[in-house]
């Protein structure tokens, strides 16, 4: 809090960040859509984007709220099936122009909302429990979703989910631009919530629930809120996943998918959004990069995790978050001993 320290005033920060984000999205989209990038590569980038949303959404519940849910793939499945059924029902592939984009937006929001509703339904009873118990109950929920999807093929006479044979011929609406936009929007929304009184309430529950309650914070409400937000973005990611693959199998939303997402969060550092983004990128790209050594790639993958847990148990970045303003301010204040943490992360 040195007075002679130059800082960027608040509206300027947001302006700079907004401009940079827009430029980044446009530039990367133009680059990816040009001939320089192969279709294979674009697809990997899309998967990375989807995994980033999954990781940052789980990070809300794990990193910020401090709970350990193991049923994240369940919320993703709910979102994926909702989006898939909706897109098929409105026949999005045949729509043109404005309506096409409207359908996509509607599908994404709808998937998020339905997953969010499931988040509330599960969160209210489950969040009475803590630690291992919460892990088990959410794990159970994730499996219930998968088993139900596997065994139900028609609801009240309507063919909706097609059971174990899977939901097929979903319009492929997911493009690199879609994914990019969703990633950016998710990051921004989560960031905005976390840097407000609501976000601080969520963090206080992680730090000390009893103290939070005695500071007048409705802990149950904020727990369910964080959990619901987490489910919402998982649902959005699920919808993108449905639009990317074009067909859904219940078996792809099993327990291992939840673990995969959790590993991304833990590896990146619980409570760090940048960490989740980085590790989601690395852990998605790594198996592809190691395709040449296909026999050993799972070995490398697990080796990375084991080494990580031994040498840096708090994850790659711990709780550090990236802040562009902080870097700019450091440049503006050359050789000022310790750059005090501004604590603002910007994507």
């Amino acid at each position: 809090m040195k007075t002679n320290r130059k800082t960027i005033p608040m509206p300027m920060r947001y302006l700079i960040n907004t401009v940079l984000i827009v430029l980044f999205v446009l530039a990367s989209t133009l680059f990816v859509n040009s001939d320089a990038v192969s279709g294979y590569f674009t697809k990997i980038l899309m998967v990375i984007g989807i995994n980033i949303i999954l990781a940052i959404s789980l990070n809300i519940a794990t990193g910020y709220l401090g709970q350990l849910p193991l049923g994240h793939a369940g919320f993703m499945a709910v979102g994926a099936y909702t989006g898939g059924i909706f897109l098929k029902a409105v026949d999005a592939a045949k729509a043109t122009g404005g309506t096409y984009y409207l359908y996509i937006a509607a599908a994404l929001v709808l998937s998020g909302i339905v997953a969010g509703i499931f988040g509330i339904l599960i969160g209210v009873p489950a969040l009475r429990l803590k630690g291992d118990y919460l892990a088990i109950i959410t794990l159970g929920f994730g499996e219930i979703i998968r088993v139900v999807l596997t065994n139900i093929d028609s609801v009240l006479g309507f063919d909706l989910t097609y059971g174990a044979s899977g939901l097929k011929r979903i319009p492929k609406i997911t493009t690199f631009f879609n994914v990019m936009l969703c990633v950016v929007l998710s990051c921004v929304v989560i960031h905005m919530v976390m840097k407000s009184r609501h976000g601080r309430a969520i963090l206080s529950i992680r730090e000390n629930e009893i103290a939070a309650e005695s500071c007048g914070i409705r802990t149950t409400y904020y727990k369910v809120m964080a959990f619901t937000m987490s489910a919402f973005f998982a649902g959005v990611a699920g919808c993108l996943y449905a639009g990317y693959l074009g067909s859904l199998q219940p078996s792809s939303f099993g327990f291992m998918k939840s673990i995969e997402i959790l590993v991304m969060v833990v590896l990146g550092g619980m409570g760090s959004m940048l960490g989740s983004i980085l590790s989601a990128t690395v852990l998605t790209a790594l198996p592809e990069a190691l395709r040449a050594f296909s026999d050993y790639r799972m070995v490398v993958y697990s080796l990375v995790l084991v080494l990580m847990m031994i040498f840096k148990p708090t994850g790659l970045l711990g709780q550090y978050d990236f802040s562009l303003s902080r870097i700019l301010e450091k440049l503006m204040n050359p050789k000022k001993s310790t750059g005090k943490k501004e604590g603002a992360s910007h994507e």
Binding site: R200, L203, E207, N208, I210
Partner: peptide, 14 residues
Amino acid sequence: RLFKTLTVLDNVLI
């Protein structure tokens, strides 16, 4: 029972 990994200011703001 403080919120240990948060800043002093955040503790008060909570």
